[in-house]
Amino acid sequence: MNAPDKPPLSSEQLIQLGFIQARSRLVDVAAFLDRVQRADSGSGGSRSALEDERVAAILAAMRLALDGQPERARRILESFSDLSTDPVAHADGKAARGIPNKP
């Protein structure tokens, strides 16, 4: 397979194959946001959980998915990435957390 211009299946076939799964995953994301917001309501805090930087990163990534441009997956992964270039002084624990620390 040498990088064909188009996938072997037509767009209609790909929609038929992937629509239910994509629909399900989108509902999962929506339900996650609902869950976070529901837990937040009435907590009396001054800051909405939707402003949490991890949740905000998901909302920003969703805007990339909607912009009509290609390579959404690559661009969303980059939006979740540390784009600095120098090694850090020390490892901050073993586990990554999904979005970069604020400088």
């Binding site: 992964l77 980059e78 979740f80 990435s81 540390d82 784009l83 600095s84 270039t85 090694p87 586990a95 990554a96 957390r97 999904g98 979005i99 970069p100």
Partner: peptide
């Protein structure tokens, strides 16, 4: 190569 937010930078390093 590293996980999640560290992969892009780590791969280049």
């Amino acid at each position: 190569t590293p996980h999640l937010e560290d992969k892009h930078k780590g791969t280049k390093l």
